[in-house]
Nucleic acid binder design. Sequence first.
RNA 1: GCCCCCAUCGUCUAGUGGCCUAGGACACCACCCUUUCAAGGUGGCGGCACGGGUUCGAAUCCCGUUGGGGGUGCCA
Length: 461
Amino acid sequence: MSTSPRYRFAPSPTGFFHVGGARTALFNWALARSTGGTFVLRIEDTDEARNRPEWTQGIIDSLAWIGIAADDPHFEGPLFQSEYADAHLAAAQRLFEAGDAYYCEMTPDEIQTLAKAEGVTGYAGWSRDLGLGPGAGRVLRFRVPDGVTVVRDQVRGDVEFDNDTIEDFVLVRSNGTPVFLLANVVDDMTMGITNVVRAEEHLPNTPKQQMIWQALGHRPPVWAHVPVLVNDQRKKLSKRRDKVALEQYRDEGYLADAMVNYLMTLGWSPGEDEIQPWSMMEPAFRLEDVNLSPAFFDVKKLGAFNGEYIRMMSVDELVQGCDPWLPVDWDRSRFAAIAPHIQQRLVTLADAPGVVDFLFIAEPEIDEASWDKAFAPEYAVPLLRNLADAYETCDWDHATLKAVMETEMETFEIKLGKAQAGTRVAVTGRAVGPPLFEALEVMGRDESLRRIRQALATLGG
RNA sequence: GCCCCCAUCGUCUAGUGGCCUAGGACACCACCCUUUCAAGGUGGCGGCACGGGUUCGAAUCCCGUUGGGGGUGCCA
């Protein structure tokens, strides 16, 4: 029997991978790797409603994206809860035979009615001593013992639950299937899980699970409940209201490294500099340092992290990274030429095409407000005309183009900032964009002049 | 309702009784730089929820209040 710790990540397949789940997985991964332990992936696929084979692959792909690779020696799985149904039921049978569980044939409606009549909140153990055996329509309930259950939590310390406040909960449904509470415990037991690190929402379940562990004669794992991720309303992130799918962020051009780094800073601090590579965070992460309050998942800050990571890329990496977001017919070498000039202007990789589209579109849309503003000054049209003439023959590199502009603008006694405005709008259609002369260089003389002449024609010049 | 958890700038956090006049980051504002926009630089705004204790000394320990959150299923 190995003594190295075994962590586990146990998502239920729902068709998308929740960012909160990603953070939990990352915490488990860091711990498993830094302790020489194992990260067990268990797919909790016992709910009929959520069980599609392709969802599992989605989970594996998402984990791989954030660096949790199925071929890493610390990775084990995926294991499927549905394949352990026999073990769940066998455990239930043992619990029944030992007297730790009993059958109950009250329906939810009957329970509600009786509870109301007696002025209690829920099921009050009415069938405890009826000595019922298994049978159609009967559920198996756990016989909650008297006393206090203390959950030792690595993040929160000892949490006490008075057993009086815990009702005899259902272990096996009337249709014979085990509920999550039981399946989860039995799986952790059979998979040799030593450490359970999961979200805080599971804390109220924990005393129940711990009682099952003990009734089954095992020492419970070390628990750790990390705070949930919340939205701007301070509510638990929900897929209905919030953007929670990891895949969506990936598709919107967020980098995996940035996402991983950001997620790790929610509830934990990697130290003086919050921008840190996984190789630094993995060994530094400790549950004892995890915060206890819910953390707001701030997309704006994620964007700031993403920008940082984009700026850290080499130009080659940037060009490669942007590729999926570029229309297929765009000239890649042309994009590569402008790429270094847009690097510090991107929040996501998906922003790239919008910043440089004028280089690839025959007739970029002209922003009217920018046009009006740029050509309002009296010098604007004559300057553009003079510039067009000079650009016919000069060398075509950004330094020369800039020098020519500086010469031409002298006549009007204006600064470069103002002088370039008209040309920018004429060529790119917008008032903002990558550095003008670099863009002109990439665009080439013919197309640049065509657009300038076209603008002059429109201006009646 | 009941059970449980939590509480430092708007947000994410550092802080584990004296190093705190509470530090950093995002956001915001100003200025600098500048070829627009960014990026970068400098500065600014802004916080220990409240009330009691304990202590020579409390953001740090204890109690209460208030406020948030989570859980209360024959879902996972």
